[in-house]
Amino acid sequence: MPECLIVQPIHPAGEEALEAAGIRVRRASAQDMKTVAAEIETADALITRDAGLNAEAMDSARNLKIIANHGIGTNKIDVAHAAELGIPISFTPTANARSVAEHAMMLILACAKRTVEADHAARNGNFRFKFEGGMSELTCKTLGIAGFGTIGRLLGEIAKNGFAMKVLIWSPSADDGTIRDNGFEPAGTLDALLEGSDVISLHRPARPDTHHMINAETLRKMRPHAILVNTARGALIDEAALAEALESGVIRAAGLDVFDPEPLDESSPLTGLRNIVLAPHVAGSTEDALKATALACAQHIVDALANKRPESLVDVAVWESRRKT
């Protein structure tokens, strides 16, 4: 019976789908790579979330034929080494997109309405909080979206249709015609996006060319009342520069679901600021998204072990030269 090792917990529906397909499910006793390397030897398939999978663990997996990444980002998987070994990697680019887009909108609203501060004030009997001001409407404001994948497009639709916001898009991979066809306006450059937006939401992958794309210099290009939101990858933002910008009033507020590194250190200057909303990387963790993602991973594994190419592969070319024994 083929076997799947699950590195981190997934929705039970995913495990049930694997077992119904005749695949034995085994959970790693811990998610660190030393433990995974010791327990992966007999696995034919593996599901990992943000723990990834390193080269050492792959080298210990003599039967491994498919790595199913539970989510979009594969930066913690040694993709190049997997390709060398002929192990395809699948991912789930759309399973949690709606949940992440909604979470980004929630952070935008929480920053605009000072929701966390208002909650704290109410719990402490401070009803004079309402005289402090600093809250704003979103209607007819401009939302700038950096990146135009599924999540960025969905967020744009929520903002435009639900709040009558003007939506600007900057994406090196999307041409102006495609952006306009979706009902949005191209910004042309990152600087134009930052300078022309009341709210900026980041939806770019973590790569060398996007590392700290938001830094002291780019923060100064934003409007003083700007709100910055990140539900993509923590490495997109220089957190020290952001903390300084929030404290000094360079921008008004920020909402972050991702950090670099994770988990966020309790001593981070971000944790002491009032004008920031923090969440522990939960944008894609709604019950709906977790179920859809787990089922997608399970289907990828069922397909791969039946010699059917999974729907979403990081590198399709690896499938043609995949390990078959």
Results as ranks from 00 to 15, higher is better:
Val25Asn: 07
Ser136Gln: 13
Glu117Gln: 15
Ala241Leu: 10
Asp176Gln: 12
Thr142Val: 12
Met135Ala: 14
Ala122Tyr: 10
Glu15Tyr: 01
Gly133Ser: 08
Thr218Asn: 04
Glu15Asp: 12
Leu278Gln: 06
Phe148Asn: 07
Ala21Gln: 09
Ile214Cys: 05
Gly188Ser: 06
Leu228Tyr: 11
Asp119Ile: 11
Arg27Met: 09
Leu246Asn: 09
Leu228Lys: 01
Val36Pro: 00
Arg309Thr: 06
Ser197Tyr: 05
Ala253Ile: 11
Gly156Tyr: 13
Glu132Ala: 14
Phe148Ile: 10
Met165Glu: 02
Leu202Asn: 06
Asp78Cys: 05
Arg24Gly: 11
Ile77Lys: 00
His211Cys: 00
Ser267Glu: 13
Lys291Phe: 08
Gly249Val: 08
Arg114Glu: 12
Asp265Glu: 15
Ala159Thr: 08
Asp288Gly: 01
Cys140Thr: 15
Trp319Gln: 11
Arg204Thr: 01
Arg98Ile: 14
Ala243Phe: 00
Asn69Ser: 12
Glu195Ala: 15
Asp315Trp: 09
Val36Gln: 00
Leu246Arg: 11
Arg123Asn: 08
Phe184His: 11
Ala283Trp: 09
Ile47Met: 01
Arg252Lys: 11
Asn182Gln: 14
Ala306Gln: 12
Ile276Glu: 04
Pro269Ser: 11
Ala112Val: 07
Lys166Leu: 10
Ser173Met: 12
Leu85Trp: 05
Asn75Tyr: 13
Pro224Gly: 02
Arg26Ser: 11
Ala298Leu: 01
Ala192Gly: 07
Ala292Tyr: 09
Thr74Ala: 08
Leu295Ile: 03
Glu56Ala: 15
Pro263Ala: 14
Ser60Glu: 14
Leu155Pro: 01
Ser171Pro: 03
Gly152His: 04
Lys291Leu: 05
Ile227Cys: 03
Glu266Trp: 05
Glu157Met: 14
Gly147Cys: 04
Ile77Ala: 01
Ile301Ala: 05
Asp181Leu: 11
Phe163Asp: 12
Asn126Glu: 15
Ile77Pro: 03
Glu195Pro: 10
Ala28Pro: 03
Ser171Val: 09
Gly196Arg: 13
Gly249Trp: 06
Met213Arg: 06
Ala206Thr: 04
Pro261Ser: 09
Ala253Arg: 10
Ala61Ser: 01
Thr178Gln: 14
Gly144Phe: 12
His120Gln: 13
Leu242Arg: 07
Ala37Phe: 08
Leu273Trp: 09
Thr178Ser: 12
Pro263Glu: 09
Leu168Ile: 08
Glu15Ala: 13
Ile251Gly: 01
Lys76Ser: 05
Ile169His: 03
Cys111Val: 12
Ala304Val: 07
Arg207Thr: 15
Asn275Glu: 10
Arg114Ser: 06
Phe163Gln: 10
Asn182Met: 13
Ala283Arg: 08
Val250Ile: 13
Leu46Tyr: 03
Ser197Trp: 04
Asn54Trp: 06
Ile6Lys: 00
Arg233Cys: 08
Ser90Leu: 01
Lys291His: 02
Glu311Met: 10
Arg274Lys: 14
Cys111Phe: 14
Glu244Asn: 13
Asp78Arg: 05
Leu85Met: 15
Leu256Thr: 01
Thr150Asn: 14
Lys113Pro: 02
Glu311Tyr: 03
Met135Ser: 12
Ala13Ser: 15
Lys76Glu: 02
Gly22Asp: 08
Phe127Tyr: 15
Thr115Phe: 15
Cys4Lys: 06
Val302Ala: 09
Arg207Gln: 13
Ala174Phe: 04
Met213Gln: 07
Ala104Trp: 07
